[in-house]
């Protein structure tokens, strides 16, 4: 008997025996994590993404704390000066209003997403599609707000990766470590977050169209909506931290 035949026979025997076994901890009867494989992997992906974002945000904290002028004062740019007003609409003296609107949009789209997941549990196709469309609209609104903010800072104010027009008074060049790092970290972190929102919107569109076509209804579960929901909530979670670190702390 050849080795291949022997192994095939062994395999068949193993399958026969394992079919008779009762489910237990040792033969896969219990699910250690209690979640489907895809959902678990989405969680682990988000964990790795959390590390990426936290290293960016920790770097932000580090550079902000170490930004000093020769006289010992902080050379970090005052965020209130940069985010003062509604880009392209109101010029100045309205700190935090625009970013408040952005935060509200993102939290609200998170709520519509979780409502879509909840409707998926009930196999309610129509409601799933409805709330997914609301979520997509929320994501697009957030991206538009970010486009307004970025274009305003770049075109109108002249914020560059190597120059900051809002530099602290002790830094007339606008090119010290604190001034320059502000722009670099702002564009990197909000850009990376915005890219996540962008991919989230695209994935949401794909899942929404699949839900509309009845793919998940045929499958018998709306697990895919749950997975894309996890991603979307994570994007919201990151924004909560970006909001605190960049806009709130003055």
């Amino acid at each position: 008997m050849s080795t291949i035949e022997a192994s095939t026979e062994l395999k068949a025997k193993w399958h026969e025996e394992s079919a008779e076994l009762k489910p237990s901890v040792w033969n896969g009867g219990r699910v250690p994590m209690g979640v489907p494989f895809g959902k678990m992997m989405m969680w682990f992906f988000l964990l790795s993404d959390a590390f990426t974002f936290s290293s960016l945000l920790v770097a932000y904290g580090y550079f902000r704390a170490t930004a000093t002028l020769p006289n010992g004062a902080s050379s970090w740019v005052t965020p209130e000066k940069v985010f003062d007003g509604i880009p392209w609409i109101v010029d100045g003296h309205m700190p935090l209003v625009f970013v408040g609107i952005m935060t509200f949009i993102l939290i609200f789209s998170s709520v519509t997403m979780v409502l879509a997941v909840e409707a998926g549990h009930r196999m309610d196709k129509k409601t799933v599609v409805k709330y997914m469309i609301f979520t997509i609209i929320g994501g697009l609104m957030f991206l538009s707000c970010q486009a307004m903010e970025w274009s305003h800072l770049i075109i109108k104010e002249g914020l560059r990766l190597n120059f900051n027009p809002f530099a602290a008074s002790g830094d007339p060049t606008g090119m010290t470590h604190g001034s320059v790092m502000f722009g670099q970290l702002f564009f990197t972190i909000t850009g990376f977050h915005g890219f996540h929102v962008f991919t989230g919107v695209i994935i949401n569109c794909l899942v929404c169209s699949a839900a509309y076509r009845g793919v998940f209804q045929k499958k018998g579960h709306y697990e895919m909506v749950e997975k894309v929901g996890l991603y979307w909530h994570f994007v919201d979670l990151v924004w909560v931290f970006v909001f605190t670190l960049f806009y709130l702390i003055n």
Partner: peptide, 8 residues
Amino acid sequence: YEGHGFNV
């Protein structure tokens, strides 16, 4: 267990 996945 339902189909490929399962729901909690």
